[in-house]
């Protein structure tokens, strides 16, 4: 059973293509991370999912309903964290809790107050005067109190210091797994992300570069470093590598091939190298390897 199904999404801004025929699903109970550099269409996808954007073609379904025309019942099952932890910052934490509780019959304020009790804020302090980290806790607390089945978190790590980011991720992971929640999260900061997500979807301009369980991706996507014997040699790695970085005689390349496959490929191309090394990568390394540095 899928919580989110997007089929053949195509969208343009003016004449600029964002993506074409993008399809993906999010299984219930899974945490999917949509990772990509700025401007690759993460926000576009979030906006389509929330019905704030009508794609040129294609359709997104949440719990079987077109996201352009979500019913209040379905919206009640979706928790939405806006990029930058935007909330009604003209309210204080009591007012905002009172406001939201009116919309959700199953409102459970306990986790909200638990998080709030850890913040060093005064009861009458407006959210606008809080730090970014404190605001993220307010936004998170509200979503937890709402107790939605699907959480859509848009670039939640933006502006958070490492401590708050780690706190947020660990709390979210534990909560989602314990309560069997589905989470759709986007981020352009990859650090710590492997602690949170089950599946990864890496987006580049106009296309999806990878879409698979994060464990599988980490196990199959590899980085190799070789040193050439003659720096001037023409090297053709296009057959196996998805990304190559060459500095003088040192070559870094990223591939889905195994060590054996790479070695036999190098031999078949007659490439003469002195050292050969596979580098262990974090998700962030892999992300940069896949999407290139620039």
């Amino acid at each position: 059973m899928y919580a989110i199904e997007c089929k053949n999404l195509t969208h343009y801004y003016g004449k600029k293509l964002v993506y074409e025929n993008l399809s993906f699903n999010v299984e219930e109970g899974k945490i999917l991370g949509l990772l990509g550099k700025n401007g690759t269409g993460k926000s576009t996808t979030i906006n389509i999912l929330n019905g704030f954007l009508q794609p040129f073609s294609g359709v997104c379904l949440i719990y079987g309903e077109n996201t352009q025309t979500l019913t209040p019942e379905t919206k009640r099952r979706i928790g939405f964290l806006i990029e930058g932890h935007i909330q009604y910052s003209f309210m204080n934490i009591h007012q905002i809790e009172k406001f939201y509780s009116g919309f959700y019959p199953d409102w459970n304020s306990a986790p909200y107050w638990e998080l709030m009790s850890k913040l060093k804020v005064t009861p009458k302090q407006k959210i606008s005067t809080m730090s970014c980290g404190q605001r993220s806790q307010v936004a998170l607390g509200l979503i937890l109190a709402q107790d939605p089945d699907l959480l859509i978190l848009d670039d939640f790590s933006m502006g958070l210091d490492p401590g708050y980011r780690r706190l947020f991720i660990d709390y979210m992971r534990e909560y989602a797994k314990a309560e069997h929640k589905t989470v759709f999260v986007t981020s352009h900061i990859i650090q710590d992300m492997e602690r949170l997500i089950d599946d990864v979807m890496i987006m580049d301009y106009n296309k999806i570069l990878a879409q698979q369980p994060v464990e599988q991706f980490m196990n199959t996507f590899r980085q190799f470093n070789i040193t050439l014997n003659s720096p001037g040699q023409e090297v053709d790695l296009d057959g196996i590598a998805v990304n190559i970085e060459k500095v003088k005689d040192k070559i870094e390349f990223y591939t889905y091939s195994t060590e054996d496959e790479v070695k036999s490929y190098l031999a078949s191309k007659g490439i003469d190298y002195s050292s050969f090394e596979e580098r262990k990568m974090s998700l962030e390394d892999a992300f940069i390897g896949l999407t290139r540095k620039y």
Binding site: N50, F52, K75, I78, I82, Y88
Partner: peptide, 18 residues
């Protein structure tokens, strides 16, 4: 104006009402 700052009206439209 507070609804337009940071496109906060999105929060309003996301509430479980029409």
């Amino acid at each position: 104006f507070p609804e337009t700052v940071n496109k906060r009206i999105k929060l309003t439209f996301h509430l479980p009402v029409s």
